[in-house]
Design a protein around this nucleic acid. Structure first.
Length: 273
DNA sequence: AGGGGTACCTGCGGGC
DNA sequence: TGCCCGCAGGTACCCC
């Protein structure tokens, strides 16, 4: 599910309430979701909540929990006691009992995972180490993008979604960033001119900032919600994503949809070249 | 090496 | 009403 703005929104929300609290118990209801021994986390105090790409990192001192929500994972935090017995729900697979609260990991499609790792090995952990630069980091420059684009004739949209090239972009923000930059999603990456690459970098940063501003996107299936259970509202600001057949907000031309590497791809054939 | 296809799951909405 | 199909924000793995 969530891409950088959604995961960052969850991170910020949990970072306000969890650090300093102790994990009293972890109930793993669906073993395949939790890799490693949950007992290693029990009794530990949560030090911090961080994010790298789409992965959340909960530091517990000597060990850390890595959490990837994939398409439909949710983290819901409730003070105890909480009104209504909504949780655990059918799709709740892991329950963290924390001082004064409970953190529920829900996942309809069960693609996501939670993994316990030694904190000393965090940097070399495969799923972290292989990630490309964060869009908001210094190294995410036009020069860097030009360098990676020139290496491949794959479609530019696929390169944007490649986590080893850029960490955190997924289907929604890749579609939106390409619209902002006026670039067709199927364009070979190595066909972009320097000026287009510059526009694309700005488009990426712009749509991510907008996503963050609105607390992420809770699209059609409502899989993404913030830890308080509330939805984000960036979906109200989509310019192309899921707007097939609607008028382009910039020029009025009909938004088209194609399939690119198995993913829904939306664009304006007039604004994007 | 790099590309495409498929698998992992469940649910929903549309067409017939 | 009910069945079948396509689709869903991600990634890993297989095969060529």
């Amino acid at each position: 599910m969530p891409e950088l703005p959604e995961v960052e929104t969850i991170k910020r929300s949990l970072a306000k309430v969890l650090p300093g609290k102790k994990i009293k118990n972890i109930e793993v209801r669906k073993p395949k979701i939790f890799q490693g021994d949950p007992k290693e986390a029990i009794g530990k105090t949560i030090r911090s909540i961080e994010r790298r790409g789409k992965i959340l990192i909960m530091s517990l001192g000597d060990v850390s929990l890595l959490i990837h929500l994939k398409l439909t994972g949710q983290l819901i935090y409730h003070l105890v006691p909480f009104a209504g017995e909504t949780f655990p729900a059918k799709n709740t697979h892991v329950v963290f009992e924390i001082d004064h609260g409970k953190l529920f990991y829900n996942d309809l499609r069960q693609f996501g995972w939670i993994k316990i790792v030694k904190s000393s090995k965090l940097k070399v952990q495969n799923e972290i180490e292989r990630l490309g630069p964060e869009p908001f980091d210094k190294e995410f420059t036009v020069d860097y993008l030009q360098k990676i684009f020139l290496k491949t004739s794959k479609s530019i949209k696929l390169v944007l979604m490649d986590q080893e090239k850029i960490a955190g972009l997924g289907n929604i923000y890749a579609n939106e960033a390409l619209f902002e930059a006026g670039i067709l999603p199927a364009r070979p990456a190595d066909s972009l001119r320097a000026e287009e690459t510059k526009e694309l970098r700005e488009g990426i940063l712009g749509v991510l900032e907008e996503g963050l501003k609105f607390g992420g996107a809770s699209a059609a299936d409502e899989a993404y919600v913030k830890p308080d259970g509330g939805p984000g509202s960036y979906q109200k600001h989509f310019r192309v994503y899921q707007r097939e057949g609607k008028d382009c907000l910039r020029c009025g031309h009909t938004i088209l949809r194609i399939n690119l590497a198995g993913r829904g791809t939306f664009f304006c054939p007039n604004c994007q070249k």
